[in-house]
């Protein structure tokens, strides 16, 4: 069979590749709020006056930034399950809570992304002048309002380039989930190439789709940065 019909024919693998691509995007997009959110939480805690909290957060970041992402995923994937089992046994639950592979992947990616993004958030937190929150307080805003109305919008503007880079990392790191039997884009290409013994065709197709995602992300990112920087020459 020629390459075209292997991809687009009725018995072709294009459909699976497309489904895989959707899974890849879903993995990445689902990870964003958890990963970036917990990254921000980590960053805030890293600036906390409590030394123990600070040390714990620094340790967490150092650990997950210092080991291969593939290893982080394995550790979270298998370790988390063992931890949940133990915890549910301790809590006296008769049946263990079970993680499905997709969400285990999301958690694992979130952990990695949280570790990476906390650095970006810390830098951003340091870059917002103290005067801003002092001014907000003296205007009578409580600390919650100060954070969400005054600090966060500025943080996001400052952190955007860094977070954009991490998004790119994340997009490509989703491919590591393919080793955990989630059929993402790369896994779909693997299945297709094993079944048809045409690896070049399918891995190139997968690479092309990743490339489109990356280029689109780049465009969205610069657009976002432009919007966020309105009013800043």
């Amino acid at each position: 069979m020629n390459g075209f019909s292997l991809l687009f024919g009725p018995e072709g693998w294009g459909g699976l590749l497309l489904e895989g691509a959707i899974v890849t995007i879903l993995l990445a997009v689902t990870t964003v709020p958890f990963g970036f959110g917990s990254g921000l939480a980590l960053a805030v805690l890293k600036l906390s006056p409590n030394r123990v909290v600070r040390a714990f957060c620094e340790g967490f970041t150092t650990f997950f930034r210092g080991i291969p992402d593939l290893l982080s995923l394995f550790i979270v994937y298998f370790g988390l399950q063992a931890l949940i089992d133990r915890a549910s046994k301790l809590a006296g639950l008769s049946s263990a809570i079970e993680l499905n592979a997709f969400f285990a992947g999301v958690i694992a990616l979130s952990v990695v992304v949280a570790a990476y993004s906390s650095e970006v958030w810390v830098a951003a937190l340091n870059a917002v002048p103290k005067g801003q929150s002092e001014a907000a307080h003296s205007l009578g805003l409580d600390s919650r309002k100060t954070f969400f109305l005054v600090l966060l919008p500025q943080l996001i503007r400052i952190a955007l380039p860094g977070l954009g880079n991490i998004w790119m990392v994340l997009l490509k790191d989703t491919s590591l989930i393919s080793t955990l039997a989630v059929i993402d884009l790369l896994r779909a290409a693997s299945e297709a190439s094993k079944n048809t013994t045409r690896p070049i065709l399918f891995y190139s197709a997968a690479a092309a789709i990743y490339l489109v995602f990356s280029i689109l992300s780049g465009l969205v990112q610069s657009n976002l940065e432009r919007r966020a920087n309105r009013g800043f020459a």
């Binding site: 958890f34 949940i84 049946s95 263990a96 809570i97 079970e98 993680l99 499905n100 969400f103 999301v106 958690i107």
Partner: peptide, 8 residues
């Protein structure tokens, strides 16, 4: 994310 589904 925990998507609790009781096993067994």
């Amino acid at each position: 994310t925990l998507m609790a589904s009781a096993a067994g």
